[in-house]
Design a binder for these strands. Structure first.
Length: 326
DNA sequence: AATCACTGCAACCGCGAATGA
DNA sequence: TTCATTCGCGGTTGCAGTGAT
């Protein structure tokens, strides 16, 4: 016996929503809310629609403060950074972009951003550029210091890296399949360490700052709100992307526990801009990442990263290579 | 002008997770 | 604890619009 359908498919309308249906749904929800039951909602609202369809229409189109239209470069960077770290967790990524829906971001990634990234260089030049870009990126990190007051450099208008080169290098330098679930065992290691942005410890799948931390879940999903001991600092953890308030300065960081087996952080500013400086822990000590990534190592990183297989295919000639793979 | 290919996006589908009886 | 129901997510599809031939 198969799964029961969520609604009587014979009696529900499918396809694009009419303005009248939109109005009905919006009016009902404005008046009564969703009532926590999407399945029952369409009947109450006088709509011949599946509850799931109503939910989707509301979340992706009708609810207030939905942002449509062009994505900004900043949004591009956030999407790239998060995708590089947590993969296609669109709902988590959307949570970092107010007004954007997961569906919107997913569509944008699949139809534009991915192509944007891959279209920078012709396939024949791509590998060399990626290697050079990554090398440049890592060299930048060697001269940086990580502190709450450190300036964000290595990724700005003065940098030789363009936004897209940066994002591309992110994608090729990280194991993008390091999703929250994969990172969890690392985070659950309950190890104390000293590292950026200041002293903190990883405990019970949460990052804690200082000696005390009270924790609560902000929405019951993947984001946790952690109050620092003095009540001033908060930390929001969604997958392996986090934020911390320190001395009035908001710092975000990306956590990637899975490149050559070493834990890494990348500090970013409050807008989600990452500065390209990975700090990693080797042999129990935090240090700058190595600077001498060879092309072979990069290739290995890419080849072991399942969701980077749209980058290029080693076994094909340039002429055979499509611009991207799905 | 007709046809074809491509693009962008809204919507659908199926699955696993969460919830409650 | 089990089972049914609902929710939420990510992958996929369908189609209208647009540009190229």
């Amino acid at each position: 016996m198969g799964r029961a359908p969520c609604c009587d498919k014979a009696n529900v309308k499918k396809g694009p929503w009419s303005p009248e249906e939109d109005a009905k749904l919006k009016e009902y929800i404005d008046k009564y809310g969703t009532g926590g039951n999407w399945i029952a909602l369409p009947q109450k609202a006088g709509l011949k629609r599946c509850g799931k369809s109503c939910r989707l229409r509301w979340l992706n189109y009708l609810r207030p403060n939905i942002k449509h239209g062009e994505f900004t470069e900043n949004e591009d960077r956030i999407i790239c950074s998060l995708f590089a770290n947590i993969g296609s967790r669109w709902s988590i990524i959307a949570a970092q972009l107010p007004g954007r829906t997961d569906n919107d971001i997913k569509n944008y990634w699949n139809t534009k951003l991915k192509k944007k990234l891959m279209g920078i260089f012709p396939p024949s030049q791509r590998k060399a550029h990626q290697a050079a870009t990554l090398s440049s990126l890592l060299q930048t990190s060697s001269s940086s210091s990580i502190s709450p007051t450190s300036s964000y450099k290595g990724y700005n208008s003065a940098s030789s890296l363009t936004d897209l080169e940066f994002a591309s290098s992110l994608l090729s330098s990280n194991n993008c399949c390091t999703n929250a679930a994969a990172a969890a065992p690392v985070l659950q290691a309950q190890e104390n360490f000293v590292g950026p942005p200041q002293n903190y410890q990883i405990k019970d799948n949460l990052l804690m700052f200082g000696s005390e931390a009270s924790c609560s879940s902000s929405d019951g999903s993947s984001n946790n709100l952690i109050n620092h001991g003095n009540g001033e600092r908060e930390y929001e953890y969604g997958g392996n992307y986090g934020e911390v308030q320190m001395g009035g300065l908001q710092q975000s960081f990306l956590y990637n526990g899975n490149i050559d087996g070493n834990q890494r952080f990348m500090i970013s500013n409050g807008d989600g801009d990452v500065n390209g400086n990975w700090i990693q822990k080797q042999n129990g000590m935090w240090s700058d990442p190595p600077l001498d990534y060879g092309l072979e190592e990069i290739k290995q990183l890419i080849s072991t990263s399942n969701c980077n297989n749209f980058l290029f295919d080693e076994n094909k000639t340039d002429q055979e290579k499509p611009m991207m793979y799905y």
